[in-house]
Design a protein around this nucleic acid. Structure first.
Length: 327
DNA sequence: CCAGACGTTGTT
DNA sequence: GTCTGG
DNA sequence: CCAGACGTTGTT
DNA sequence: GTCTGG
C-alpha cells in the first residue's frame, strides 16, 4: 500500500456507512468528494472521525469530512515540507511499526485516529521487470457495510444496523475501512488557510493474500475494530494489537484481488474501466473493434486482399453489434 | 542553549 | 509539538 | 503510487 | 538517475 485508490461513494453514502442517520453523524466538505476511479495522494478522501469536545463517551458524535490524502502536521511551517511531490517528507502512509517512537506520528495516535473509506485500492505486482496493476477490495459476500457505535443504546444500534436503502450511488460491495491518522494545519501569516489531511497506516502483509502482491498493506479495520479505533478513550497502546490481528484476519478471508488493465497506471485515466477485471476489459476492447488490429495481417497488399480485409472489418463490425447487444 | 528533523515505497 | 544532535 | 520530462535559440 | 505532475 498504498498510493492509488478508487472512490465513488457519495457523501450521503459515507455518512450512512459512518454510523447511520440523523444528527449523530455530520457530513462536511462533501463537495470535495467526486467519483474517482483513479486517485492518488493530494486528492481528497472521505474520513470518518469522532467529533472533539462533544462531551462524555455516551454523547460522542461522528463526522465524515473530506481530507487531503498526505498529512501535513499542525506544526509544519510550510505545507510543502510535507508534500512528497515537492521534495518534502512522504506522509500519505505511516508505518505502524515504530509509530509510537516517531515525533511525527506519536502525537496523533491517541486523539487523531480516523477511518478512511475506499472502494478499493491498486497495487502493482512486480514480476522481474514488469509490473501488473491489481485491484483490491472487499469480496461481494462480506457484509461489513457500516461502523457500529461503541457503548450505545440499543436504539442507536438499531438505527445503524443494516443499510436500509438500496445504495444506488456506488459499488454494492462493502467499502474498505482503512486505519488512518489526521491532523489540522493552519497557515501562519496574512492568508488564512486551514488544511485537514490524513495518512493511512501500513503493516506487514505476512500470512495474508496481500503478501503475494506487495511487501506492505494498509491496516484494514472491521466494523468492530473501526468503532474502537474511533473511540478516543481507548489508548493506541491498548488497541493496536487487536486491531493488527483483526486486520490480518480480514486480509486472509475477506479480500478480493484481481488484475486490471494498464489503464490505471496513468493517473489521468479516470474511467470506470480502471476497476474492471483485465479479462473483462480486454473483452470490451475486442468488442469495440480495437482488438481486430491484433489479428494477423494479410501477407500481400494487393487490391483483392485489401478488399477482403475491409470485408472482414465489416463482418467484424456486425459481430461487435451482436456482442454489445448481448451484454 | 539553538538548529534541524520529523517519512514512505521501492530498488539495489 | 517534541526529540536528537551538536 | 506511476508517468513523463529532463533543453535552447530565436521568433511571434 | 532524479525530479515534477497528477
Amino acid at each position: 500500500m498504498c498510493g492509488r485508490g478508487a472512490l465513488t461513494l457519495s457523501g450521503d453514502r459515507c455518512r450512512r456507512i459512518a454510523g447511520g442517520h440523523g444528527g449523530r453523524t455530520a457530513l462536511r466538505g462533501s463537495d470535495r468528494l467526486r467519483k474517482k476511479y483513479n486517485l492518488g495522494p493530494m486528492n481528497y478522501v472521505p474520513v470518518v472521525r469522532t467529533l472533539e469536545g462533544s462531551g462524555q463517551e455516551a454523547a460522542l458524535d461522528r463526522e465524515v469530512c473530506a481530507m487531503r490524502w498526505g498529512l501535513v502536521p499542525a506544526f509544519a511551517k510550510r505545507a510543502e515540507d510535507f508534500d512528497a511531490f515537492k521534495g518534502g517528507s512522504s506522509t500519505f502512509n505511516a508505518r505502524v511499526e515504530g509509530a509510537e517512537s516517531s515525533n511525527l506520528w506519536r502525537r496523533l495516535l491517541d486523539k487523531r485516529r480516523c477511518v478512511v473509506l475506499f472502494d478499493g485500492f491498486y497495487e502493482w505486482k512486480a514480476h522481474g521487470k514488469t509490473k501488473t496493476p491489481m485491484f483490491i477490495r472487499n469480496r461481494d459476500e462480506y457484509d461489513g457495510h457500516t461502523i457500529p457505535w461503541r457503548s450505545k443504546t440499543s436504539e442507536d444500534l438499531q438505527k445503524v444496523g443494516e443499510p436500509d436503502e438500496k445504495e444506488l450511488d456506488g459499488p454494492q460491495h462493502a467499502p474498505l475501512f482503512l486505519a488512518g491518522l489526521y491532523d489540522v494545519w493552519h497557515q501562519k501569516g496574512d492568508v488564512e488557510e486551514t488544511l485537514e489531511s490524513v495518512t493511512i497506516l501500513t503493516m506487514d502483509p505476512e500470512h495474508t493474500i496481500m503478501e503475494e502482491v506487495h511487501d506492505r498493506m494498509p491496516v484494514f479495520l472491521t466494523p468492530e475494530t473501526a468503532a474502537s479505533w474511533l473511540d478516543p478513550s481507548v489508548p493506541f497502546s491498548e488497541i493496536i494489537r487487536p486491531v493488527l490481528k483483526m486486520s490480518q484476519a480480514h486480509a486472509q478471508s475477506q479480500l478480493l484481488l484481481y488484475e486490471v488493465s494498464p489503464l490505471v497506471s496513468n493517473i489521468r485515466n479516470e474511467s470506470p474501466d480502471c476497476v474492471l477485471p483485465k479479462k473483462k476489459y480486454d473483452e470490451k476492447q475486442l468488442a469495440k473493434g480495437i482488438g481486430r488490429f491484433f489479428k494477423p495481417k494479410p501477407a500481400d497488399s494487393d487490391l483483392k486482399s485489401k478488399k477482403r480485409t475491409l470485408e472482414d472489418c465489416e463482418e467484424q463490425d456486425k459481430e461487435d453489434v451482436k456482442v454489445i447487444r448481448l451484454e
